[in-house]
Amino acid sequence: MPRYYIDTDDDDLLVESDGSEMLTSPAEARRAALDALPDMARDKMPDGDHRTFRATVRDEHGREVYTATMTLVGTWKITPPAS
């Protein structure tokens, strides 16, 4: 049975999967990659107003088979409040 791995990158940190999550189909791996993106954004914000998040699926041979990318851009329309 083939295995798939999800690597994530938030522009600061690349995390390569250690295989602890058992993903056995391309569709299951794609769904896991897409599901990871909003969680990554929640964990990283509000650290900046521009960031690109990526989740890449690798097969058991290390080949990239799917990549999902989400770009988050926040822009103040007024003078931001003092912190």
Results as ranks from 00 to 15, higher is better:
Met1His: 14
Met1Leu: 09
Met1Ala: 14
Pro2Leu: 11
Arg3Pro: 03
Arg3Ala: 15
Tyr4Met: 10
Tyr4Asp: 05
Tyr5Thr: 05
Tyr5Val: 04
Tyr5Arg: 06
Asp7Lys: 14
Asp7Trp: 10
Asp7Pro: 06
Thr8Glu: 07
Asp9Pro: 06
Asp9Ile: 06
Asp11Thr: 15
Asp12Lys: 14
Asp12Phe: 09
Leu14Ala: 10
Val15Leu: 12
Val15Gln: 12
Glu16Val: 14
Glu16Leu: 14
Asp18Ala: 15
Ser20Asn: 07
Ser20Ile: 08
Ser20Leu: 13
Leu23Asp: 00
Leu23His: 00
Thr24Gln: 09
Thr24Gly: 08
Ser25Gln: 05
Ser25Val: 11
Pro26His: 03
Pro26Trp: 00
Ala27Glu: 11
Glu28Ala: 14
Arg30Val: 11
Arg30Gln: 14
Arg30Thr: 13
Arg31Asp: 07
Arg31Met: 10
Arg31Val: 13
Ala32Glu: 06
Leu34Gln: 11
Leu34Trp: 05
Asp35Trp: 01
Ala36Tyr: 00
Leu37Ala: 05
Leu37Ser: 02
Pro38His: 06
Pro38Phe: 00
Asp39Glu: 14
Asp39Ala: 15
Asp39Lys: 07
Met40Trp: 00
Met40Ile: 05
Arg42Ser: 13
Pro46Ala: 09
Gly48Glu: 03
Gly48Ser: 13
Gly48Cys: 06
Gly48Ile: 08
Gly48His: 02
His50Asn: 12
His50Ala: 13
Arg51Asp: 04
Arg51Asn: 11
Arg51Cys: 11
Thr52Val: 15
Phe53Ala: 01
Arg54Cys: 07
Arg54Gln: 11
Arg54Met: 06
Ala55Gln: 00
Ala55Leu: 02
Ala55Val: 02
Thr56Leu: 03
Thr56Gly: 02
Thr56Cys: 01
Val57Asn: 01
Val57Lys: 00
Arg58Trp: 08
Arg58Asn: 10
Glu60Ala: 12
Gly62Ile: 07
Arg63Leu: 11
Tyr66Cys: 08
Thr67Gln: 15
Thr67Val: 15
Ala68Arg: 04
Ala68Glu: 05
Ala68Ile: 11
Thr69Cys: 10
Met70Pro: 01
Met70Cys: 09
Thr71Lys: 05
Thr71Glu: 10
Val73Gln: 13
Val73Tyr: 02
Gly74Pro: 00
Thr75Glu: 13
Thr75Gly: 03
Thr75Cys: 05
Thr75Tyr: 01
Trp76Tyr: 14
Thr79Phe: 03
Pro81Phe: 06
Pro81Ala: 12
Ala82Glu: 10
